[in-house]
Design a protein around this nucleic acid. Structure first.
Length: 691
DNA sequence: GCCAACGCGAGGTTAGCCCA
DNA sequence: TGGGCTAACCTCGCGTTGGC
């Protein structure tokens, strides 16, 4: 780039603008701008007036002129002036009425001559500045302003103005705020909880179908059976259409228009391109694996490759931020660095032959990256992160030993439908057994909590609503929930698709997608498919007692897009979801949970995102901190103060923020910081292994 | 040495066209 | 009719030039 610019600049002609040209540009702009009231603004007609200038040159010049506030005032004044002159002239017949739509090819020269003539005739006519009253109520507002909702993306109803301010400079922020001083903004709320009322069975079904739609669309080709999918979907009639509309509203699916992509069987919808682009994330393709490859290669001094890929760059920048790499000139004796070879500061001509800007990368000696270091941590028993990752990988659905934590049942490795209870009788038996093992004082609480949940039947109750039952402290409530949930078999279970809630284990099946094969289908399947697949899916079967004799075995799949309709976990889809969330956090350090939901609402439900976040936290890929949002400040209140709280806190004003990397035990010190990067690379390494 | 003006590349947004 | 594609438009940061 240096060379080409140098070559070009040496012969560059500086464009000169004189007063007359500025004036012509001014009139031309007014006329074009006036025309663009209803249609799009085009600079191209300006070249008719200024034939020796390009539209780009005109645009730039105009931007420069507009920096002058007097010029700005003149422009807004003349815009109103020309509007009147133009309308008058059309009435009188002085000007020909041209097609409104025509934005590029209209008689700009004639209009400009007329404009200048009128200005000459009436030099003192200046329009008073329009007085815009500050609206004191909604009525006045609507009298003077047209309030419209504007969003570039019609699917993204929750587009906040604040999004536009993220990541830009203070000057740009000010500019944007000034430009939108009269914008009515949707109240910006970033608290974690969203209370989604669910009152009847229909709403539960709708949630299941929404999940089922994505499961069907995400199933890999070799595991997909359209007949089965069709039958499973039809079991949810007559709600399917309504559910499809809900998914369509998010923009995740669009009507099929040819092609042979996977579609919702019998409904003519398939995954939208937007969906695919959001889930594939904004990070460059294969960046993680490229970064890891570079990290492995980078053991001794090397010259920076000018064709470095995104992963190499990401790795270098990351190491640089951790102080693990030093940059220096590869050739410190190069003439350009040792002596003044610039003949004169005016022309700044430089002999290209002397240019050598090769940069050498030196791994930091104190913490140099060596083979042994990687090997050490791989073999080290203490390095739980890496070990955990591997064991998680091995542990599919049957692995129950991994964790006893209060996590969703639908996350990878935590789904075991065998655990669920079927009848109230059964549940009370299990509860009795559980209570026997508990302290006297705690017995009552656990029992109360269970029956509150069970009495809500299929609908269940969100955790935040449980808090409203005043008898228990928050801490005790969480303990009760934990005991009931981690019991074997579980007495209560966390369910939900768009918002999580607890139901008694006996109603859990209603929250799962019923994927039972019809008898005819099943025989067909058994004939055509290999037995081992059948075995796999049967591990998730729920044995039913006597209710259903016609279909002896009912199967259920968790309502998550990374399960197929046989209840099999689909690694590739789950990894895609992990990458989408990780990529978002990587690009927006300190993003709050509500924003993650909002930005990924097109591809994942709230509960799916929660599961993914939990998984990333388990793998130590991300860390989080929660705060209680203070009440709104007024002129007379104390300054707002965000107080840190536990993630488990049930406060309805809780906001959780996420970052990449591990949580240091006692804040950050330098060594920890390096450690975070180290872990991050191990994480990436594991993460991209299967890619 | 400072500053205005500009070129250039990169990347984002938008209106309109095309096509199934 | 709606989604995808694309040219035109727009913005930004960086670097250079030339006048003062």
């Amino acid at each position: 780039r240096f060379e080409t610019q140098y070559e070009q600049y040496s012969q560059r002609q500086r464009p000169v603008w004189n007063k007359e040209e500025d004036e012509l540009l001014f009139y031309a702009y007014i006329i074009i701008k006036h025309r663009s009231a209803k249609y799009r603004f085009f600079w191209s007609p300006v070249t008719k007036v200024l034939p020796h200038k390009t539209r780009e040159m005109c645009r730039r010049r105009f931007n420069v002129l507009m920096k002058n506030s007097a010029f700005q005032a003149r422009v807004s004044n003349y815009l109103l002036f020309w509007k009147d002159i133009y309308n008058e002239a059309i009435k009188k017949g002085d000007l020909n009425e041209e097609e409104e739509k025509q934005m590029k090819d209209f008689d700009i020269i004639n209009q400009m001559e007329y404009f200048k003539k009128i200005v000459k005739e009436r030099p003192n006519v200046t329009r008073p500045k329009p007085i815009i009253p500050l609206p004191k109520d909604v009525k006045t507002l609507q009298e003077h302003f047209v309030v419209t909702y504007s969003s570039p993306n019609r699917h993204n109803r929750d587009l906040y103005f604040e999004d536009k301010l993220g990541g830009c400079s203070l000057r740009q922020k000010m500019k944007k705020l000034y430009a939108h001083s009269l914008t009515y903004r949707i109240p910006y709320n970033n608290i974690d909880y969203v209370l989604k009322e669910i009152n009847n069975e229909k709403q539960i079904k709708l949630e299941c179908i929404q999940a089922l739609i994505k499961m069907i669309l995400m199933t890999p080709e070799d595991q997909y059976d359209p007949t089965h999918a069709f039958a499973v979907l039809n079991r949810y009639e007559p709600y399917v259409k309504e559910a499809i509309d809900l998914v369509k509203e998010t923009g995740a699916i669009v009507k099929v228009k040819g092609g042979s992509d996977r579609r919702i069987p019998g409904r003519g919808f398939h995954v939208s391109d937007k969906f695919l682009s959001v889930i594939s994330g904004k990070l460059p393709d294969r960046m993680f694996s490229q970064a890891v490859n570079f990290y492995k290669k980078f053991k001794e001094i090397m010259i920076f490759d000018q064709f470095a890929n995104s992963g190499d760059m990401a790795c270098i920048l990351d190491l640089l931020s951790a102080g693990k790499v030093a940059l220096s000139f590869a050739n410190p004796d190069a003439p350009i660095l040792t002596k003044n070879i610039v003949p004169s500061h005016r022309s700044r001509k430089i002999d290209v032959a002397n240019l050598n800007f090769d940069v050498s990368l030196t791994p930091n000696i104190s913490s140099s990256i060596t083979n042994t270091e990687i090997d050490d941590s791989e073999s080290s028993k203490n390095n739980s992160i890496y070990e955990n990752n591997i064991s998680n990988d091995k542990g599919k659905c049957e692995n129950n030993t991994v964790q006893e934590k209060n996590t969703s049942a639908f996350k990878k490795g935590h789904f075991d439908s065998k655990q669920f209870l079927n009848t109230r009788k059964e549940a009370s038996k299990v509860l009795k057994l559980l209570l026997e093992s508990l302290d006297q004082e705690f017995k009552r609480d656990v029992k109360d909590v269970y029956y509150i949940i069970e009495n809500r039947d299929k609908v269940g109750i969100p955790l935040v609503s449980l808090k409203k039952y005043p008898k228990l402290s928050e801490e005790n409530l969480l303990r009760c929930i934990n005991i009931l949930e981690t019991n074997h078999p579980s007495l209560i279970i966390k369910v939900g698709y768009n918002a999580s809630r607890y139901v008694s284990s006996i109603y859990s099946k209603d929250w799962f997608v019923n994927t039972t094969q019809t008898t005819a289908n099943k025989f067909k399947k058994q004939r055509t498919e290999k037995v081992n697949i059948e075995e796999k899916s049967s591990s998730h079967n729920v044995e039913l007692s006597d209710e259903s004799k016609t279909e002896s075995v009912e199967t259920f799949a968790p309502p998550r897009m990374w399960y197929d309709i046989n209840g099999n976990f689909i690694e590739s889809v789950f990894r895609g979801c992990l990458e989408a969330v990780l990529g978002l956090i990587l690009q927006n350090p300190g993003i709050c949970e509500a924003d993650i939901y909002r930005k990924l609402s097109l591809v994942m439900s709230r509960c799916e995102i929660q599961d993914v976040l939990e998984e990333l936290l388990d793998r130590k890929g991300i860390r989080r901190k929660s705060f209680i949002q203070p009440p709104k400040v007024t002129l007379f209140s104390k300054p707002a103060e965000f107080k840190e709280c536990d993630f488990d806190s049930l406060d309805s004003n809780k906001i959780t923020y996420y970052w990449c990397g591990k949580v240091p035990e006692n804040g950050f010190d330098e060594s920890e910081r390096i450690n975070v990067n180290e872990i991050y690379y191990h994480y990436c390494e594991y993460y991209t292994k299967e890619a």
